[in-house]
Amino acid sequence: MKRFASLILLLVLFVAGCAPASTPAPEPVTLNVFAAASLTDAFTEIGNNFQTANPNVTVTFNFAGSQALRTQIEEGAPADVFASASGKEMEALVTGSFVAPESSQVFLNNKLVVILPANNPAGIDSIEDLANAGIKIVFAAEEVPVGRYSREALDKMSGMYGSDFKDKVLANVVSNEDNVKQVVAKVQLGEADAGIVYTSDAIAAPELVTIEIPTDINVVAKYPIAPLVESANAELAHAFIAYVLSDEGQAILQK
């Protein structure tokens, strides 16, 4: 114990020695960020940059489907920041007084895109081909924001390709995955012939073939971010959000 204490003391002295003499070394803190699975790549980079700028801070991420994160927060999981893939989950937390009203801000617009395995085994060349009988499509479950948006986009597509388009596509769905990264994985492995994910996920998996969805039949997901009322590090949470909204943060998100 004594040895441990002296070790800590040494460490503290060392850190203090490194810091400019005028400011005392800040206490190490951990910032818990709950973020939608589709943000995994961008937020990991943002977190690293934020840690570099604030050496006393450790940013811990919990990436999962937004709805799962929402339930975890409602059940008392300690979060400082919540970044959701849909306004719906954020509104629910505002209703439950976990997030202060009007404290959330939209930080990202993410569109949908069709992804195919690199060798495109089902020979899909257009969005219309998604209705071809016998192909295997993987969606995110309807409970997940991207799954809900995918179905909204199908509604719009039905207006363009015929009223039975949505039913035909849904008949091709072989699995409703519980988050967007699982959709990417199943298409990457070639188990599915096609999937619908966010543009950001497609960019993170460059080996996949993508088919753009025209704006008039696409759905734009607006991602809100907010500090949690219960956060023990409110100031830091605000700083993190400010960084996400800053030009630098936005540049990472646009990549």
Partner: peptide, 8 residues
Amino acid sequence: AGNLEGVT
């Protein structure tokens, strides 16, 4: 097996 109501 994935997740599809009634199948998996």
